[in-house]
Nucleic acid binder design. Structure first.
Lengths: 125, 125
DNA sequence: ATAGATGCAAAGAGTTTGCATAGGT
DNA sequence: ACCTATGCAAACTCTTTGCATCTAT
């Protein structure tokens, strides 16, 4: 069974507090304010463990960055800011996407990413 | 100015022949049939050069894989097969995606990726 | 002949893993 | 006391870069 460690709790709190998907480095920086000696390997191991438990999900972004967010029950997508690179949740989905696939292909899912500028970066380039 | 080398031509031909986005490794394998000594560094340098010229565009997929395809003038999206991992072009776009973004955010673009099984992998798991 | 392109190997960046130790239970 | 979780460092993967050589012009 899994243990309740300061590191694990700090990582979970960082994700809860952010309310948006965080990169491993963002998680590290946030959680280190609580547990200064925290190492990046623990962040990777912990988010993987939390993902296995179904508590968080990975958000893989074009460019190779993988962020992590607390698991939601509802279908949603993401927005990435070109200014600060932060990732935000986007509610809703255009739907009717399966019909776009080539004939003979079976669509099992989809991902949609919007990009542009968040409210903060829109005013502060 | 740029030179017309066997390597560069083999890489361009691989992209034309495939008719779909190729990963650096796929490009290497295809182009090596024409130029056996071809190295992966040349593939990376060449696709970057072709991208700078506007002849190819990068297709960045969740998971960190970056593929390259010949540049199209029309807006389109992609499908990735969970069986063979190959990437295909998808025509059309659901449109009206900007409205999904949070208030105060400006949307400059979007990417849509469908995933599932291609026609080949649907019958051959 | 000149200068850009290539192949190799080394260097980076991000992520994962091995191992001794710390620390939850 | 036991055994998982941690921190460090090494290993790994993918991509980029330095450099001597090759080759298109």
């Amino acid at each position: 069974m899994e243990r309740r460690t300061r590191q694990r709790e700090a990582i979970r709190r960082a994700l809860v507090a952010a309310g948006r998907p965080l990169s491993p480095q963002e998680i590290l920086a946030d959680a280190q304010r609580e547990v200064p000696g925290l190492g990046i390997a623990t962040v990777y191991r912990t988010v993987k463990s939390l993902a296995d438990d179904g508590e968080v999900t990975a958000v893989e972004l074009p460019g190779g960055l993988t962020c992590f967010e607390r698991r939601h029950q509802h279908h949603h997508h993401h927005f990435q800011c070109r200014g600060c690179q932060k990732v935000f949740e986007v509610h809703g989905c255009p739907g009717h996407l399966d019909r776009l696939a080539p004939a003979g292909f079976s669509v099992e899912g989809h991902e949609l990413l919007l990009f542009g500028r968040c409210a903060d970066c829109r005013t502060t380039p």
